[in-house]
């Protein structure tokens, strides 16, 4: 019975992911199968059937602009059609700003002698990819501990042993996802519309305490074994500044629900990674001969500095 349930869970997760992917690929015209950016300055259009080559070669049939600037049309340098006449590559004179969605207007598509009407399509990066880049960004590239220097008190306090580190990391991830989503909801639908954003700090810290209490109660009832393992870390979560910083960042950047979820999840997992790395080193350090004055925290700080230097190598990296 249990195995079945797990399968259902995996299936439903896959279904949700598929829906997101579908949402990202949705096109406005039935004859156009796919549009995507290629390299720095071209756009690929895939049609459902072969198109008329003479029509496709005419640059006047395409007009394209960045979504916020509908009046400025981009100049198309060259159009190339693939041998099977289904794929058209538009090459532009200048590099495209791929962070902006582009609106492509293809007039009077001609395929096998028939006109198929005008199509408006949006060319943009996959939304799923964008979400994923937020997740990885918060987790590694802008790791909260090593590149934003937050949550250090708890970080140094609980990174002595691997088991503690993992326990703390998991508890923290659960709480932060919980509280960040509540904070996002409250901020978007209560604080912002009523111009109460100056109450951010009070509301967010209240929500964090609330969600810690909630997770505590739920865990105690549902899974006492798990509570025994992770209960001790719950109290420490409140003293972690990441848990306040994430809602503040969400409020500043105006993320939507999915993006907020990804950022919170990334922050939690990033903290877990940082704790795990640090505890691995500190377990080894216990065996090393460290000068008396450096024993304990000072050497831990130096190690963290080395990690931070290493993480600097990730900075500015962009995925998708």
């Amino acid at each position: 019975m249990k195995i079945f349930r797990r399968e259902y869970l995996i299936l439903s997760v896959l279904a949700v992911l598929g829906l997101i992917l579908l949402g990202g690929c949705k096109q406005e015209h039935r004859f156009i199968k796919k549009t995507a950016f290629k390299d720095t300055n071209s756009i690929v259009i895939v049609f459902a059937g072969p198109v008329d080559e003479a029509w496709a070669q005419n640059t006047g049939n395409y007009s394209i602009y960045e979504k916020p600037d509908p009046d400025i049309k981009l100049k198309i340098g060259k159009v190339s059609v693939s041998p099977d006449k289904r794929t058209v590559v538009l090459t532009f004179e200048e590099d495209l700003n791929q962070d902006q969605p582009h609106i492509l207007n293809i007039s009077e598509i001609i395929s096998e002698g028939k006109s198929l009407g005008t199509a408006f399509v949006k060319v943009k990066k996959l939304y799923f990819g964008y979400l994923f880049s937020i997740l990885i960004g918060a987790m590694i590239i802008n790791n909260f501990v090593f590149t934003k220097y937050l949550g250090l008190c708890v970080f140094f306090g609980t990174s002595q042993k691997k088991s503690t580190a993992v326990g703390m990391g998991i508890t923290f991830t659960i709480v932060i996802v919980f509280s960040a989503m509540m904070a996002w909801f409250l901020y978007q639908f209560v604080l912002k519309p009523y111009r109460l954003d100056f109450l951010q700090i009070v509301v967010f810290i209240g929500l964090v305490s609330l969600s810690v209490q909630a997770v505590d109660t739920i865990l105690r009832k549902l899974n006492p074994a798990l509570f025994k393992a992770f209960g001790v870390y719950l109290v420490l979560v409140i003293a972690n500044c990441i848990v306040i910083a994430v809602p503040l960042i969400l409020a500043d950047n105006e993320y939507n629900g999915w993006e907020s979820l990804m950022l919170a999840l990334g922050a939690g997992l990033g903290f877990l990674i940082a704790l795990f790395l640090m505890s691995s080193v500190r377990e080894r350090l216990d065996l090393a001969n460290v000068p008396t004055t450096y024993r304990g925290l000072p050497i831990a700080f130096v190690v963290a500095g080395l990690f931070a230097l290493a993480f600097m190598g990730f900075s500015g990296m962009s995925i998708f």
Binding site: P298, A304, G305, F311
Partner: peptide, 17 residues
């Protein structure tokens, strides 16, 4: 560089010790 903050704090703590 931001990473140097860790080193500075570590060394200052060692001096206090």
């Amino acid at each position: 560089l931001p990473a140097a903050g860790f080193f500075c704090v570590g060394i200052m703590m060692a001096i206090y010790n």
